Structures are given as structure tokens and as C-alpha cells.
Computed example of a mutant assay.
Amino acid sequence: MRKTACTATLVALVLAAPASGQTVPTRASLDACHTGAAPLDRFAVFSGQMGTVPGTKRMQVRFDLLQRAAGGTGFRRIQAQGLGVWRSSVPGIDIFRYHKQVANLAAPGQYRALVGFRWLGDGGRVLQQAVRRTRTCKQPDLRADLAIGPLTAERAGTGKLAYTVIVRNDGRTATPTFGVGFAVGDQAQPPQTVQPLAAGEQRALTFVAPRCDASEPVRVTLDPDLAVDEANEGNNTRTIPCPLSG
């Protein structure tokens, strides 16, 4: 259940082409959208392309990254080094293409770039401006997600019950080995070790422990040692009413 901070890192590449005698569209593109469980595996590559207009001495592009977080209703700008900066072409070219890679994207989330274009004339005078928006790069959360399933119990001798609890991995990647804690009221039992669970897999664990009742419910705790990096950390502990009555 380790938390990983997500910050953007940027890599830029400039490509300039000589005059070709053809009209070059002004456009912004999403060239690549790579997903992954680890932050550094999640990145997007955006590009902007423009051609000269009459009187152009230099061309410029600017990339702003927009993010819509999980549950959000709209996109917002992300502040990071290398974003929101005008990048200039060298003089004397007719086509200017600029590629920007944005890595370490947080998940889940959606990302797109707002690309600005400027054409500069003599003395840096702005001749024309334009803005284009790229397609969206969707980053699902591919981490594991432990969850506690149903609990059943049956008698196992005087004052004892055999409790069986289902442990699931509702996430999209396998877990490492992790522990499961179990308690009846304030009586903690020896934890059990669960070998790696594949995505979508579940496993039944049985604990023989003192009999529960209405005043002493059962408490199950998954991964108390924080061995699993999870998509949802809020469902790893559950207090369950005694499954047997009478």
C-alpha cells in the first residue's frame, strides 16, 4: 500500500523541415499514450506542427498540459517545468514541428495538450496566433486492489469457530506476497501470509479463533505491513458482525 508521488517530467525534440512548396496545416496531435502500473511507465507524446505565413521570420509553439482527474467534471492546467513556455524555431524554415513527451502521469486520469502557435515577423512582432487541442490520453489505474469478500463461520470445538474469509484482488496487476490480520473483538489472532494474487483472483483463508457474538465482531485487515501498492487504500480493513447467532 505504498503511495507514489506523480510529477511530470518533460523531454522535447525539435524537427525543422526546409521549404516544400506545399501548404502545411496547423495542427496538434497526440502521438503516443502509454499506460502502465508504475508512474514512469505512464507517458504521453504530443506534437505541434505549423507552416509559415507571409512575413514570417520565426515560428513558436507552446504546450500546456490539461488533466481531468478521476471523478472530475472538467480539465485543468497542470503546472510543471517545461510546460507553458514558448519554443522558437530557427530562422529561415518553412515548417516547424515540435514534439513533447510528458512522463510520470498520475492515474487514473485523462490528459490532453493545449498547443499554442505564434508567427513572428520583423522585430518579434506577432503576425498571427492560433490554438489547437489534442486528443485525450486516458490513463487507467493498473495497480492491484485488495478487497475483503464474504465471511462465513462454523463451529470448531468448545468456544471456537472456524472463520473463512474471501480475499480478492480487484485490481489489474498481480500482488506480491502480503499478510492478513484477523481479530475477534480485541483478541488478535496470528496473521496469515497470502502468496501473490493475480488480477481478478480470490483466495479463501480460514482462521480458527474464539467464538464471536454481537458484542465482539470480527475484524479483518489486509496487508497491514504495506507490501502492496494499491489503487484503493480505503477498503483494506473491515469490521464484520458475527456470522453466527445463537
Rank of each mutant, 00 (worst) to 15 (best):
R2E: 12
R2Y: 03
C6W: 07
L10C: 06
A12F: 13
L13H: 14
L15C: 05
L15M: 13
G21K: 00
Q22M: 08
T23V: 09
T35R: 14
G36C: 06
G36S: 05
L40Y: 08
D41G: 13
R42V: 01
R42L: 03
A44M: 04
A44V: 06
V45Y: 01
F46V: 01
G51Q: 01
T52M: 07
V53M: 07
G55H: 10
K57Q: 15
R58N: 08
F63D: 06
L66Y: 09
R68F: 03
R77Q: 14
Q79K: 10
V85I: 07
W86L: 02
S89C: 05
P91G: 03
D94I: 01
I95D: 02
H99R: 15
H99W: 14
Q101M: 13
Q110W: 08
L114M: 14
W119I: 03
W119S: 00
L120R: 03
G121Y: 05
V126G: 00
R132K: 15
R133L: 14
T134P: 01
Q139V: 09
L146N: 07
A147Y: 09
G149A: 05
G149S: 08
G149W: 07
T152D: 14
E154Q: 14
G159D: 10
L161D: 10
Y163L: 11
T164K: 04
V165E: 05
I166P: 00
N169G: 11
N169R: 12
R172H: 12
A174P: 03
T175M: 11
F178E: 00
V180P: 00
V180G: 00
G181I: 05
F182S: 09
A183I: 06
G185M: 07
D186G: 11
Q187F: 10
Q187I: 11
Q192I: 08
L197G: 02
A198T: 05
R203P: 02
L205M: 10
F207R: 03
F207K: 02
A214F: 06
E216R: 15
P217C: 10
P217A: 09
R219C: 08
A227W: 04
V228S: 05
I240M: 10
P241H: 13
P241K: 14
P241E: 15
S245P: 00
G246F: 08
G246W: 07
